Amino acid sequence: MAIVSIDADIKAKWPQGQCSYSPGSPEELAIIAIDLLFKALGTAAAQAFVSQVFEKYPHDHSA
Rank of each mutant, 00 (worst) to 15 (best):
residue 22 S to Y: 15
residue 39 K to I: 03
residue 37 L to A: 12
residue 60 D to Y: 01
residue 50 V to H: 06
residue 4 V to M: 09
residue 62 S to W: 07
residue 8 A to L: 15
residue 21 Y to V: 05
residue 19 C to D: 12
residue 63 A to D: 00
residue 21 Y to M: 11
residue 46 A to I: 05
residue 35 D to L: 08
residue 46 A to F: 08
residue 19 C to A: 14
residue 42 G to S: 01
residue 56 K to G: 15
residue 42 G to A: 04
residue 21 Y to R: 06
residue 47 Q to S: 08
residue 33 A to T: 05
residue 26 P to N: 06
residue 42 G to N: 02
residue 30 A to Q: 07
residue 54 F to R: 03
residue 34 I to A: 06
residue 37 L to D: 01
residue 49 F to V: 07
residue 32 I to F: 07
residue 61 H to W: 09
residue 35 D to Y: 15
residue 27 E to C: 12
residue 50 V to P: 00
residue 22 S to R: 15
residue 24 G to Y: 11
residue 1 M to G: 07
residue 10 I to M: 05
residue 36 L to W: 00
residue 17 G to D: 13
residue 63 A to Q: 00
residue 8 A to C: 11
residue 3 I to M: 12
residue 8 A to K: 08
residue 43 T to Y: 10
residue 20 S to P: 09
residue 28 E to I: 05
residue 30 A to N: 11
residue 49 F to W: 01
residue 52 Q to P: 09
residue 10 I to H: 14
residue 3 I to H: 14
residue 9 D to E: 15
residue 39 K to T: 00
residue 49 F to A: 04
residue 23 P to S: 13
residue 1 M to K: 10
residue 32 I to Y: 14
residue 13 K to V: 08
residue 62 S to V: 09
residue 47 Q to N: 05
residue 37 L to N: 09
residue 8 A to M: 10
residue 14 W to S: 11
residue 52 Q to T: 03
residue 42 G to F: 08
residue 16 Q to G: 08
residue 41 L to F: 05
residue 29 L to R: 02
residue 39 K to D: 00
residue 43 T to F: 03
residue 27 E to I: 13
residue 16 Q to D: 10
residue 56 K to F: 13
residue 12 A to Y: 03
residue 22 S to D: 02
residue 59 H to C: 04
residue 38 F to W: 03
residue 7 D to F: 05
residue 48 A to P: 08
residue 1 M to P: 14
residue 32 I to M: 01
residue 55 E to L: 02
residue 28 E to C: 12
residue 29 L to N: 00
residue 59 H to G: 01
residue 36 L to A: 02
residue 16 Q to V: 11
residue 42 G to I: 02
residue 48 A to N: 07
residue 4 V to D: 08
residue 32 I to V: 13
residue 34 I to S: 13
residue 6 I to E: 01
residue 61 H to D: 02
residue 2 A to R: 07
residue 24 G to T: 13
residue 16 Q to R: 08
residue 63 A to M: 02
residue 30 A to E: 12
residue 31 I to L: 11
residue 17 G to M: 04
residue 37 L to H: 01
residue 38 F to K: 02
residue 54 F to T: 01
residue 58 P to I: 02
residue 33 A to C: 12
residue 14 W to E: 07
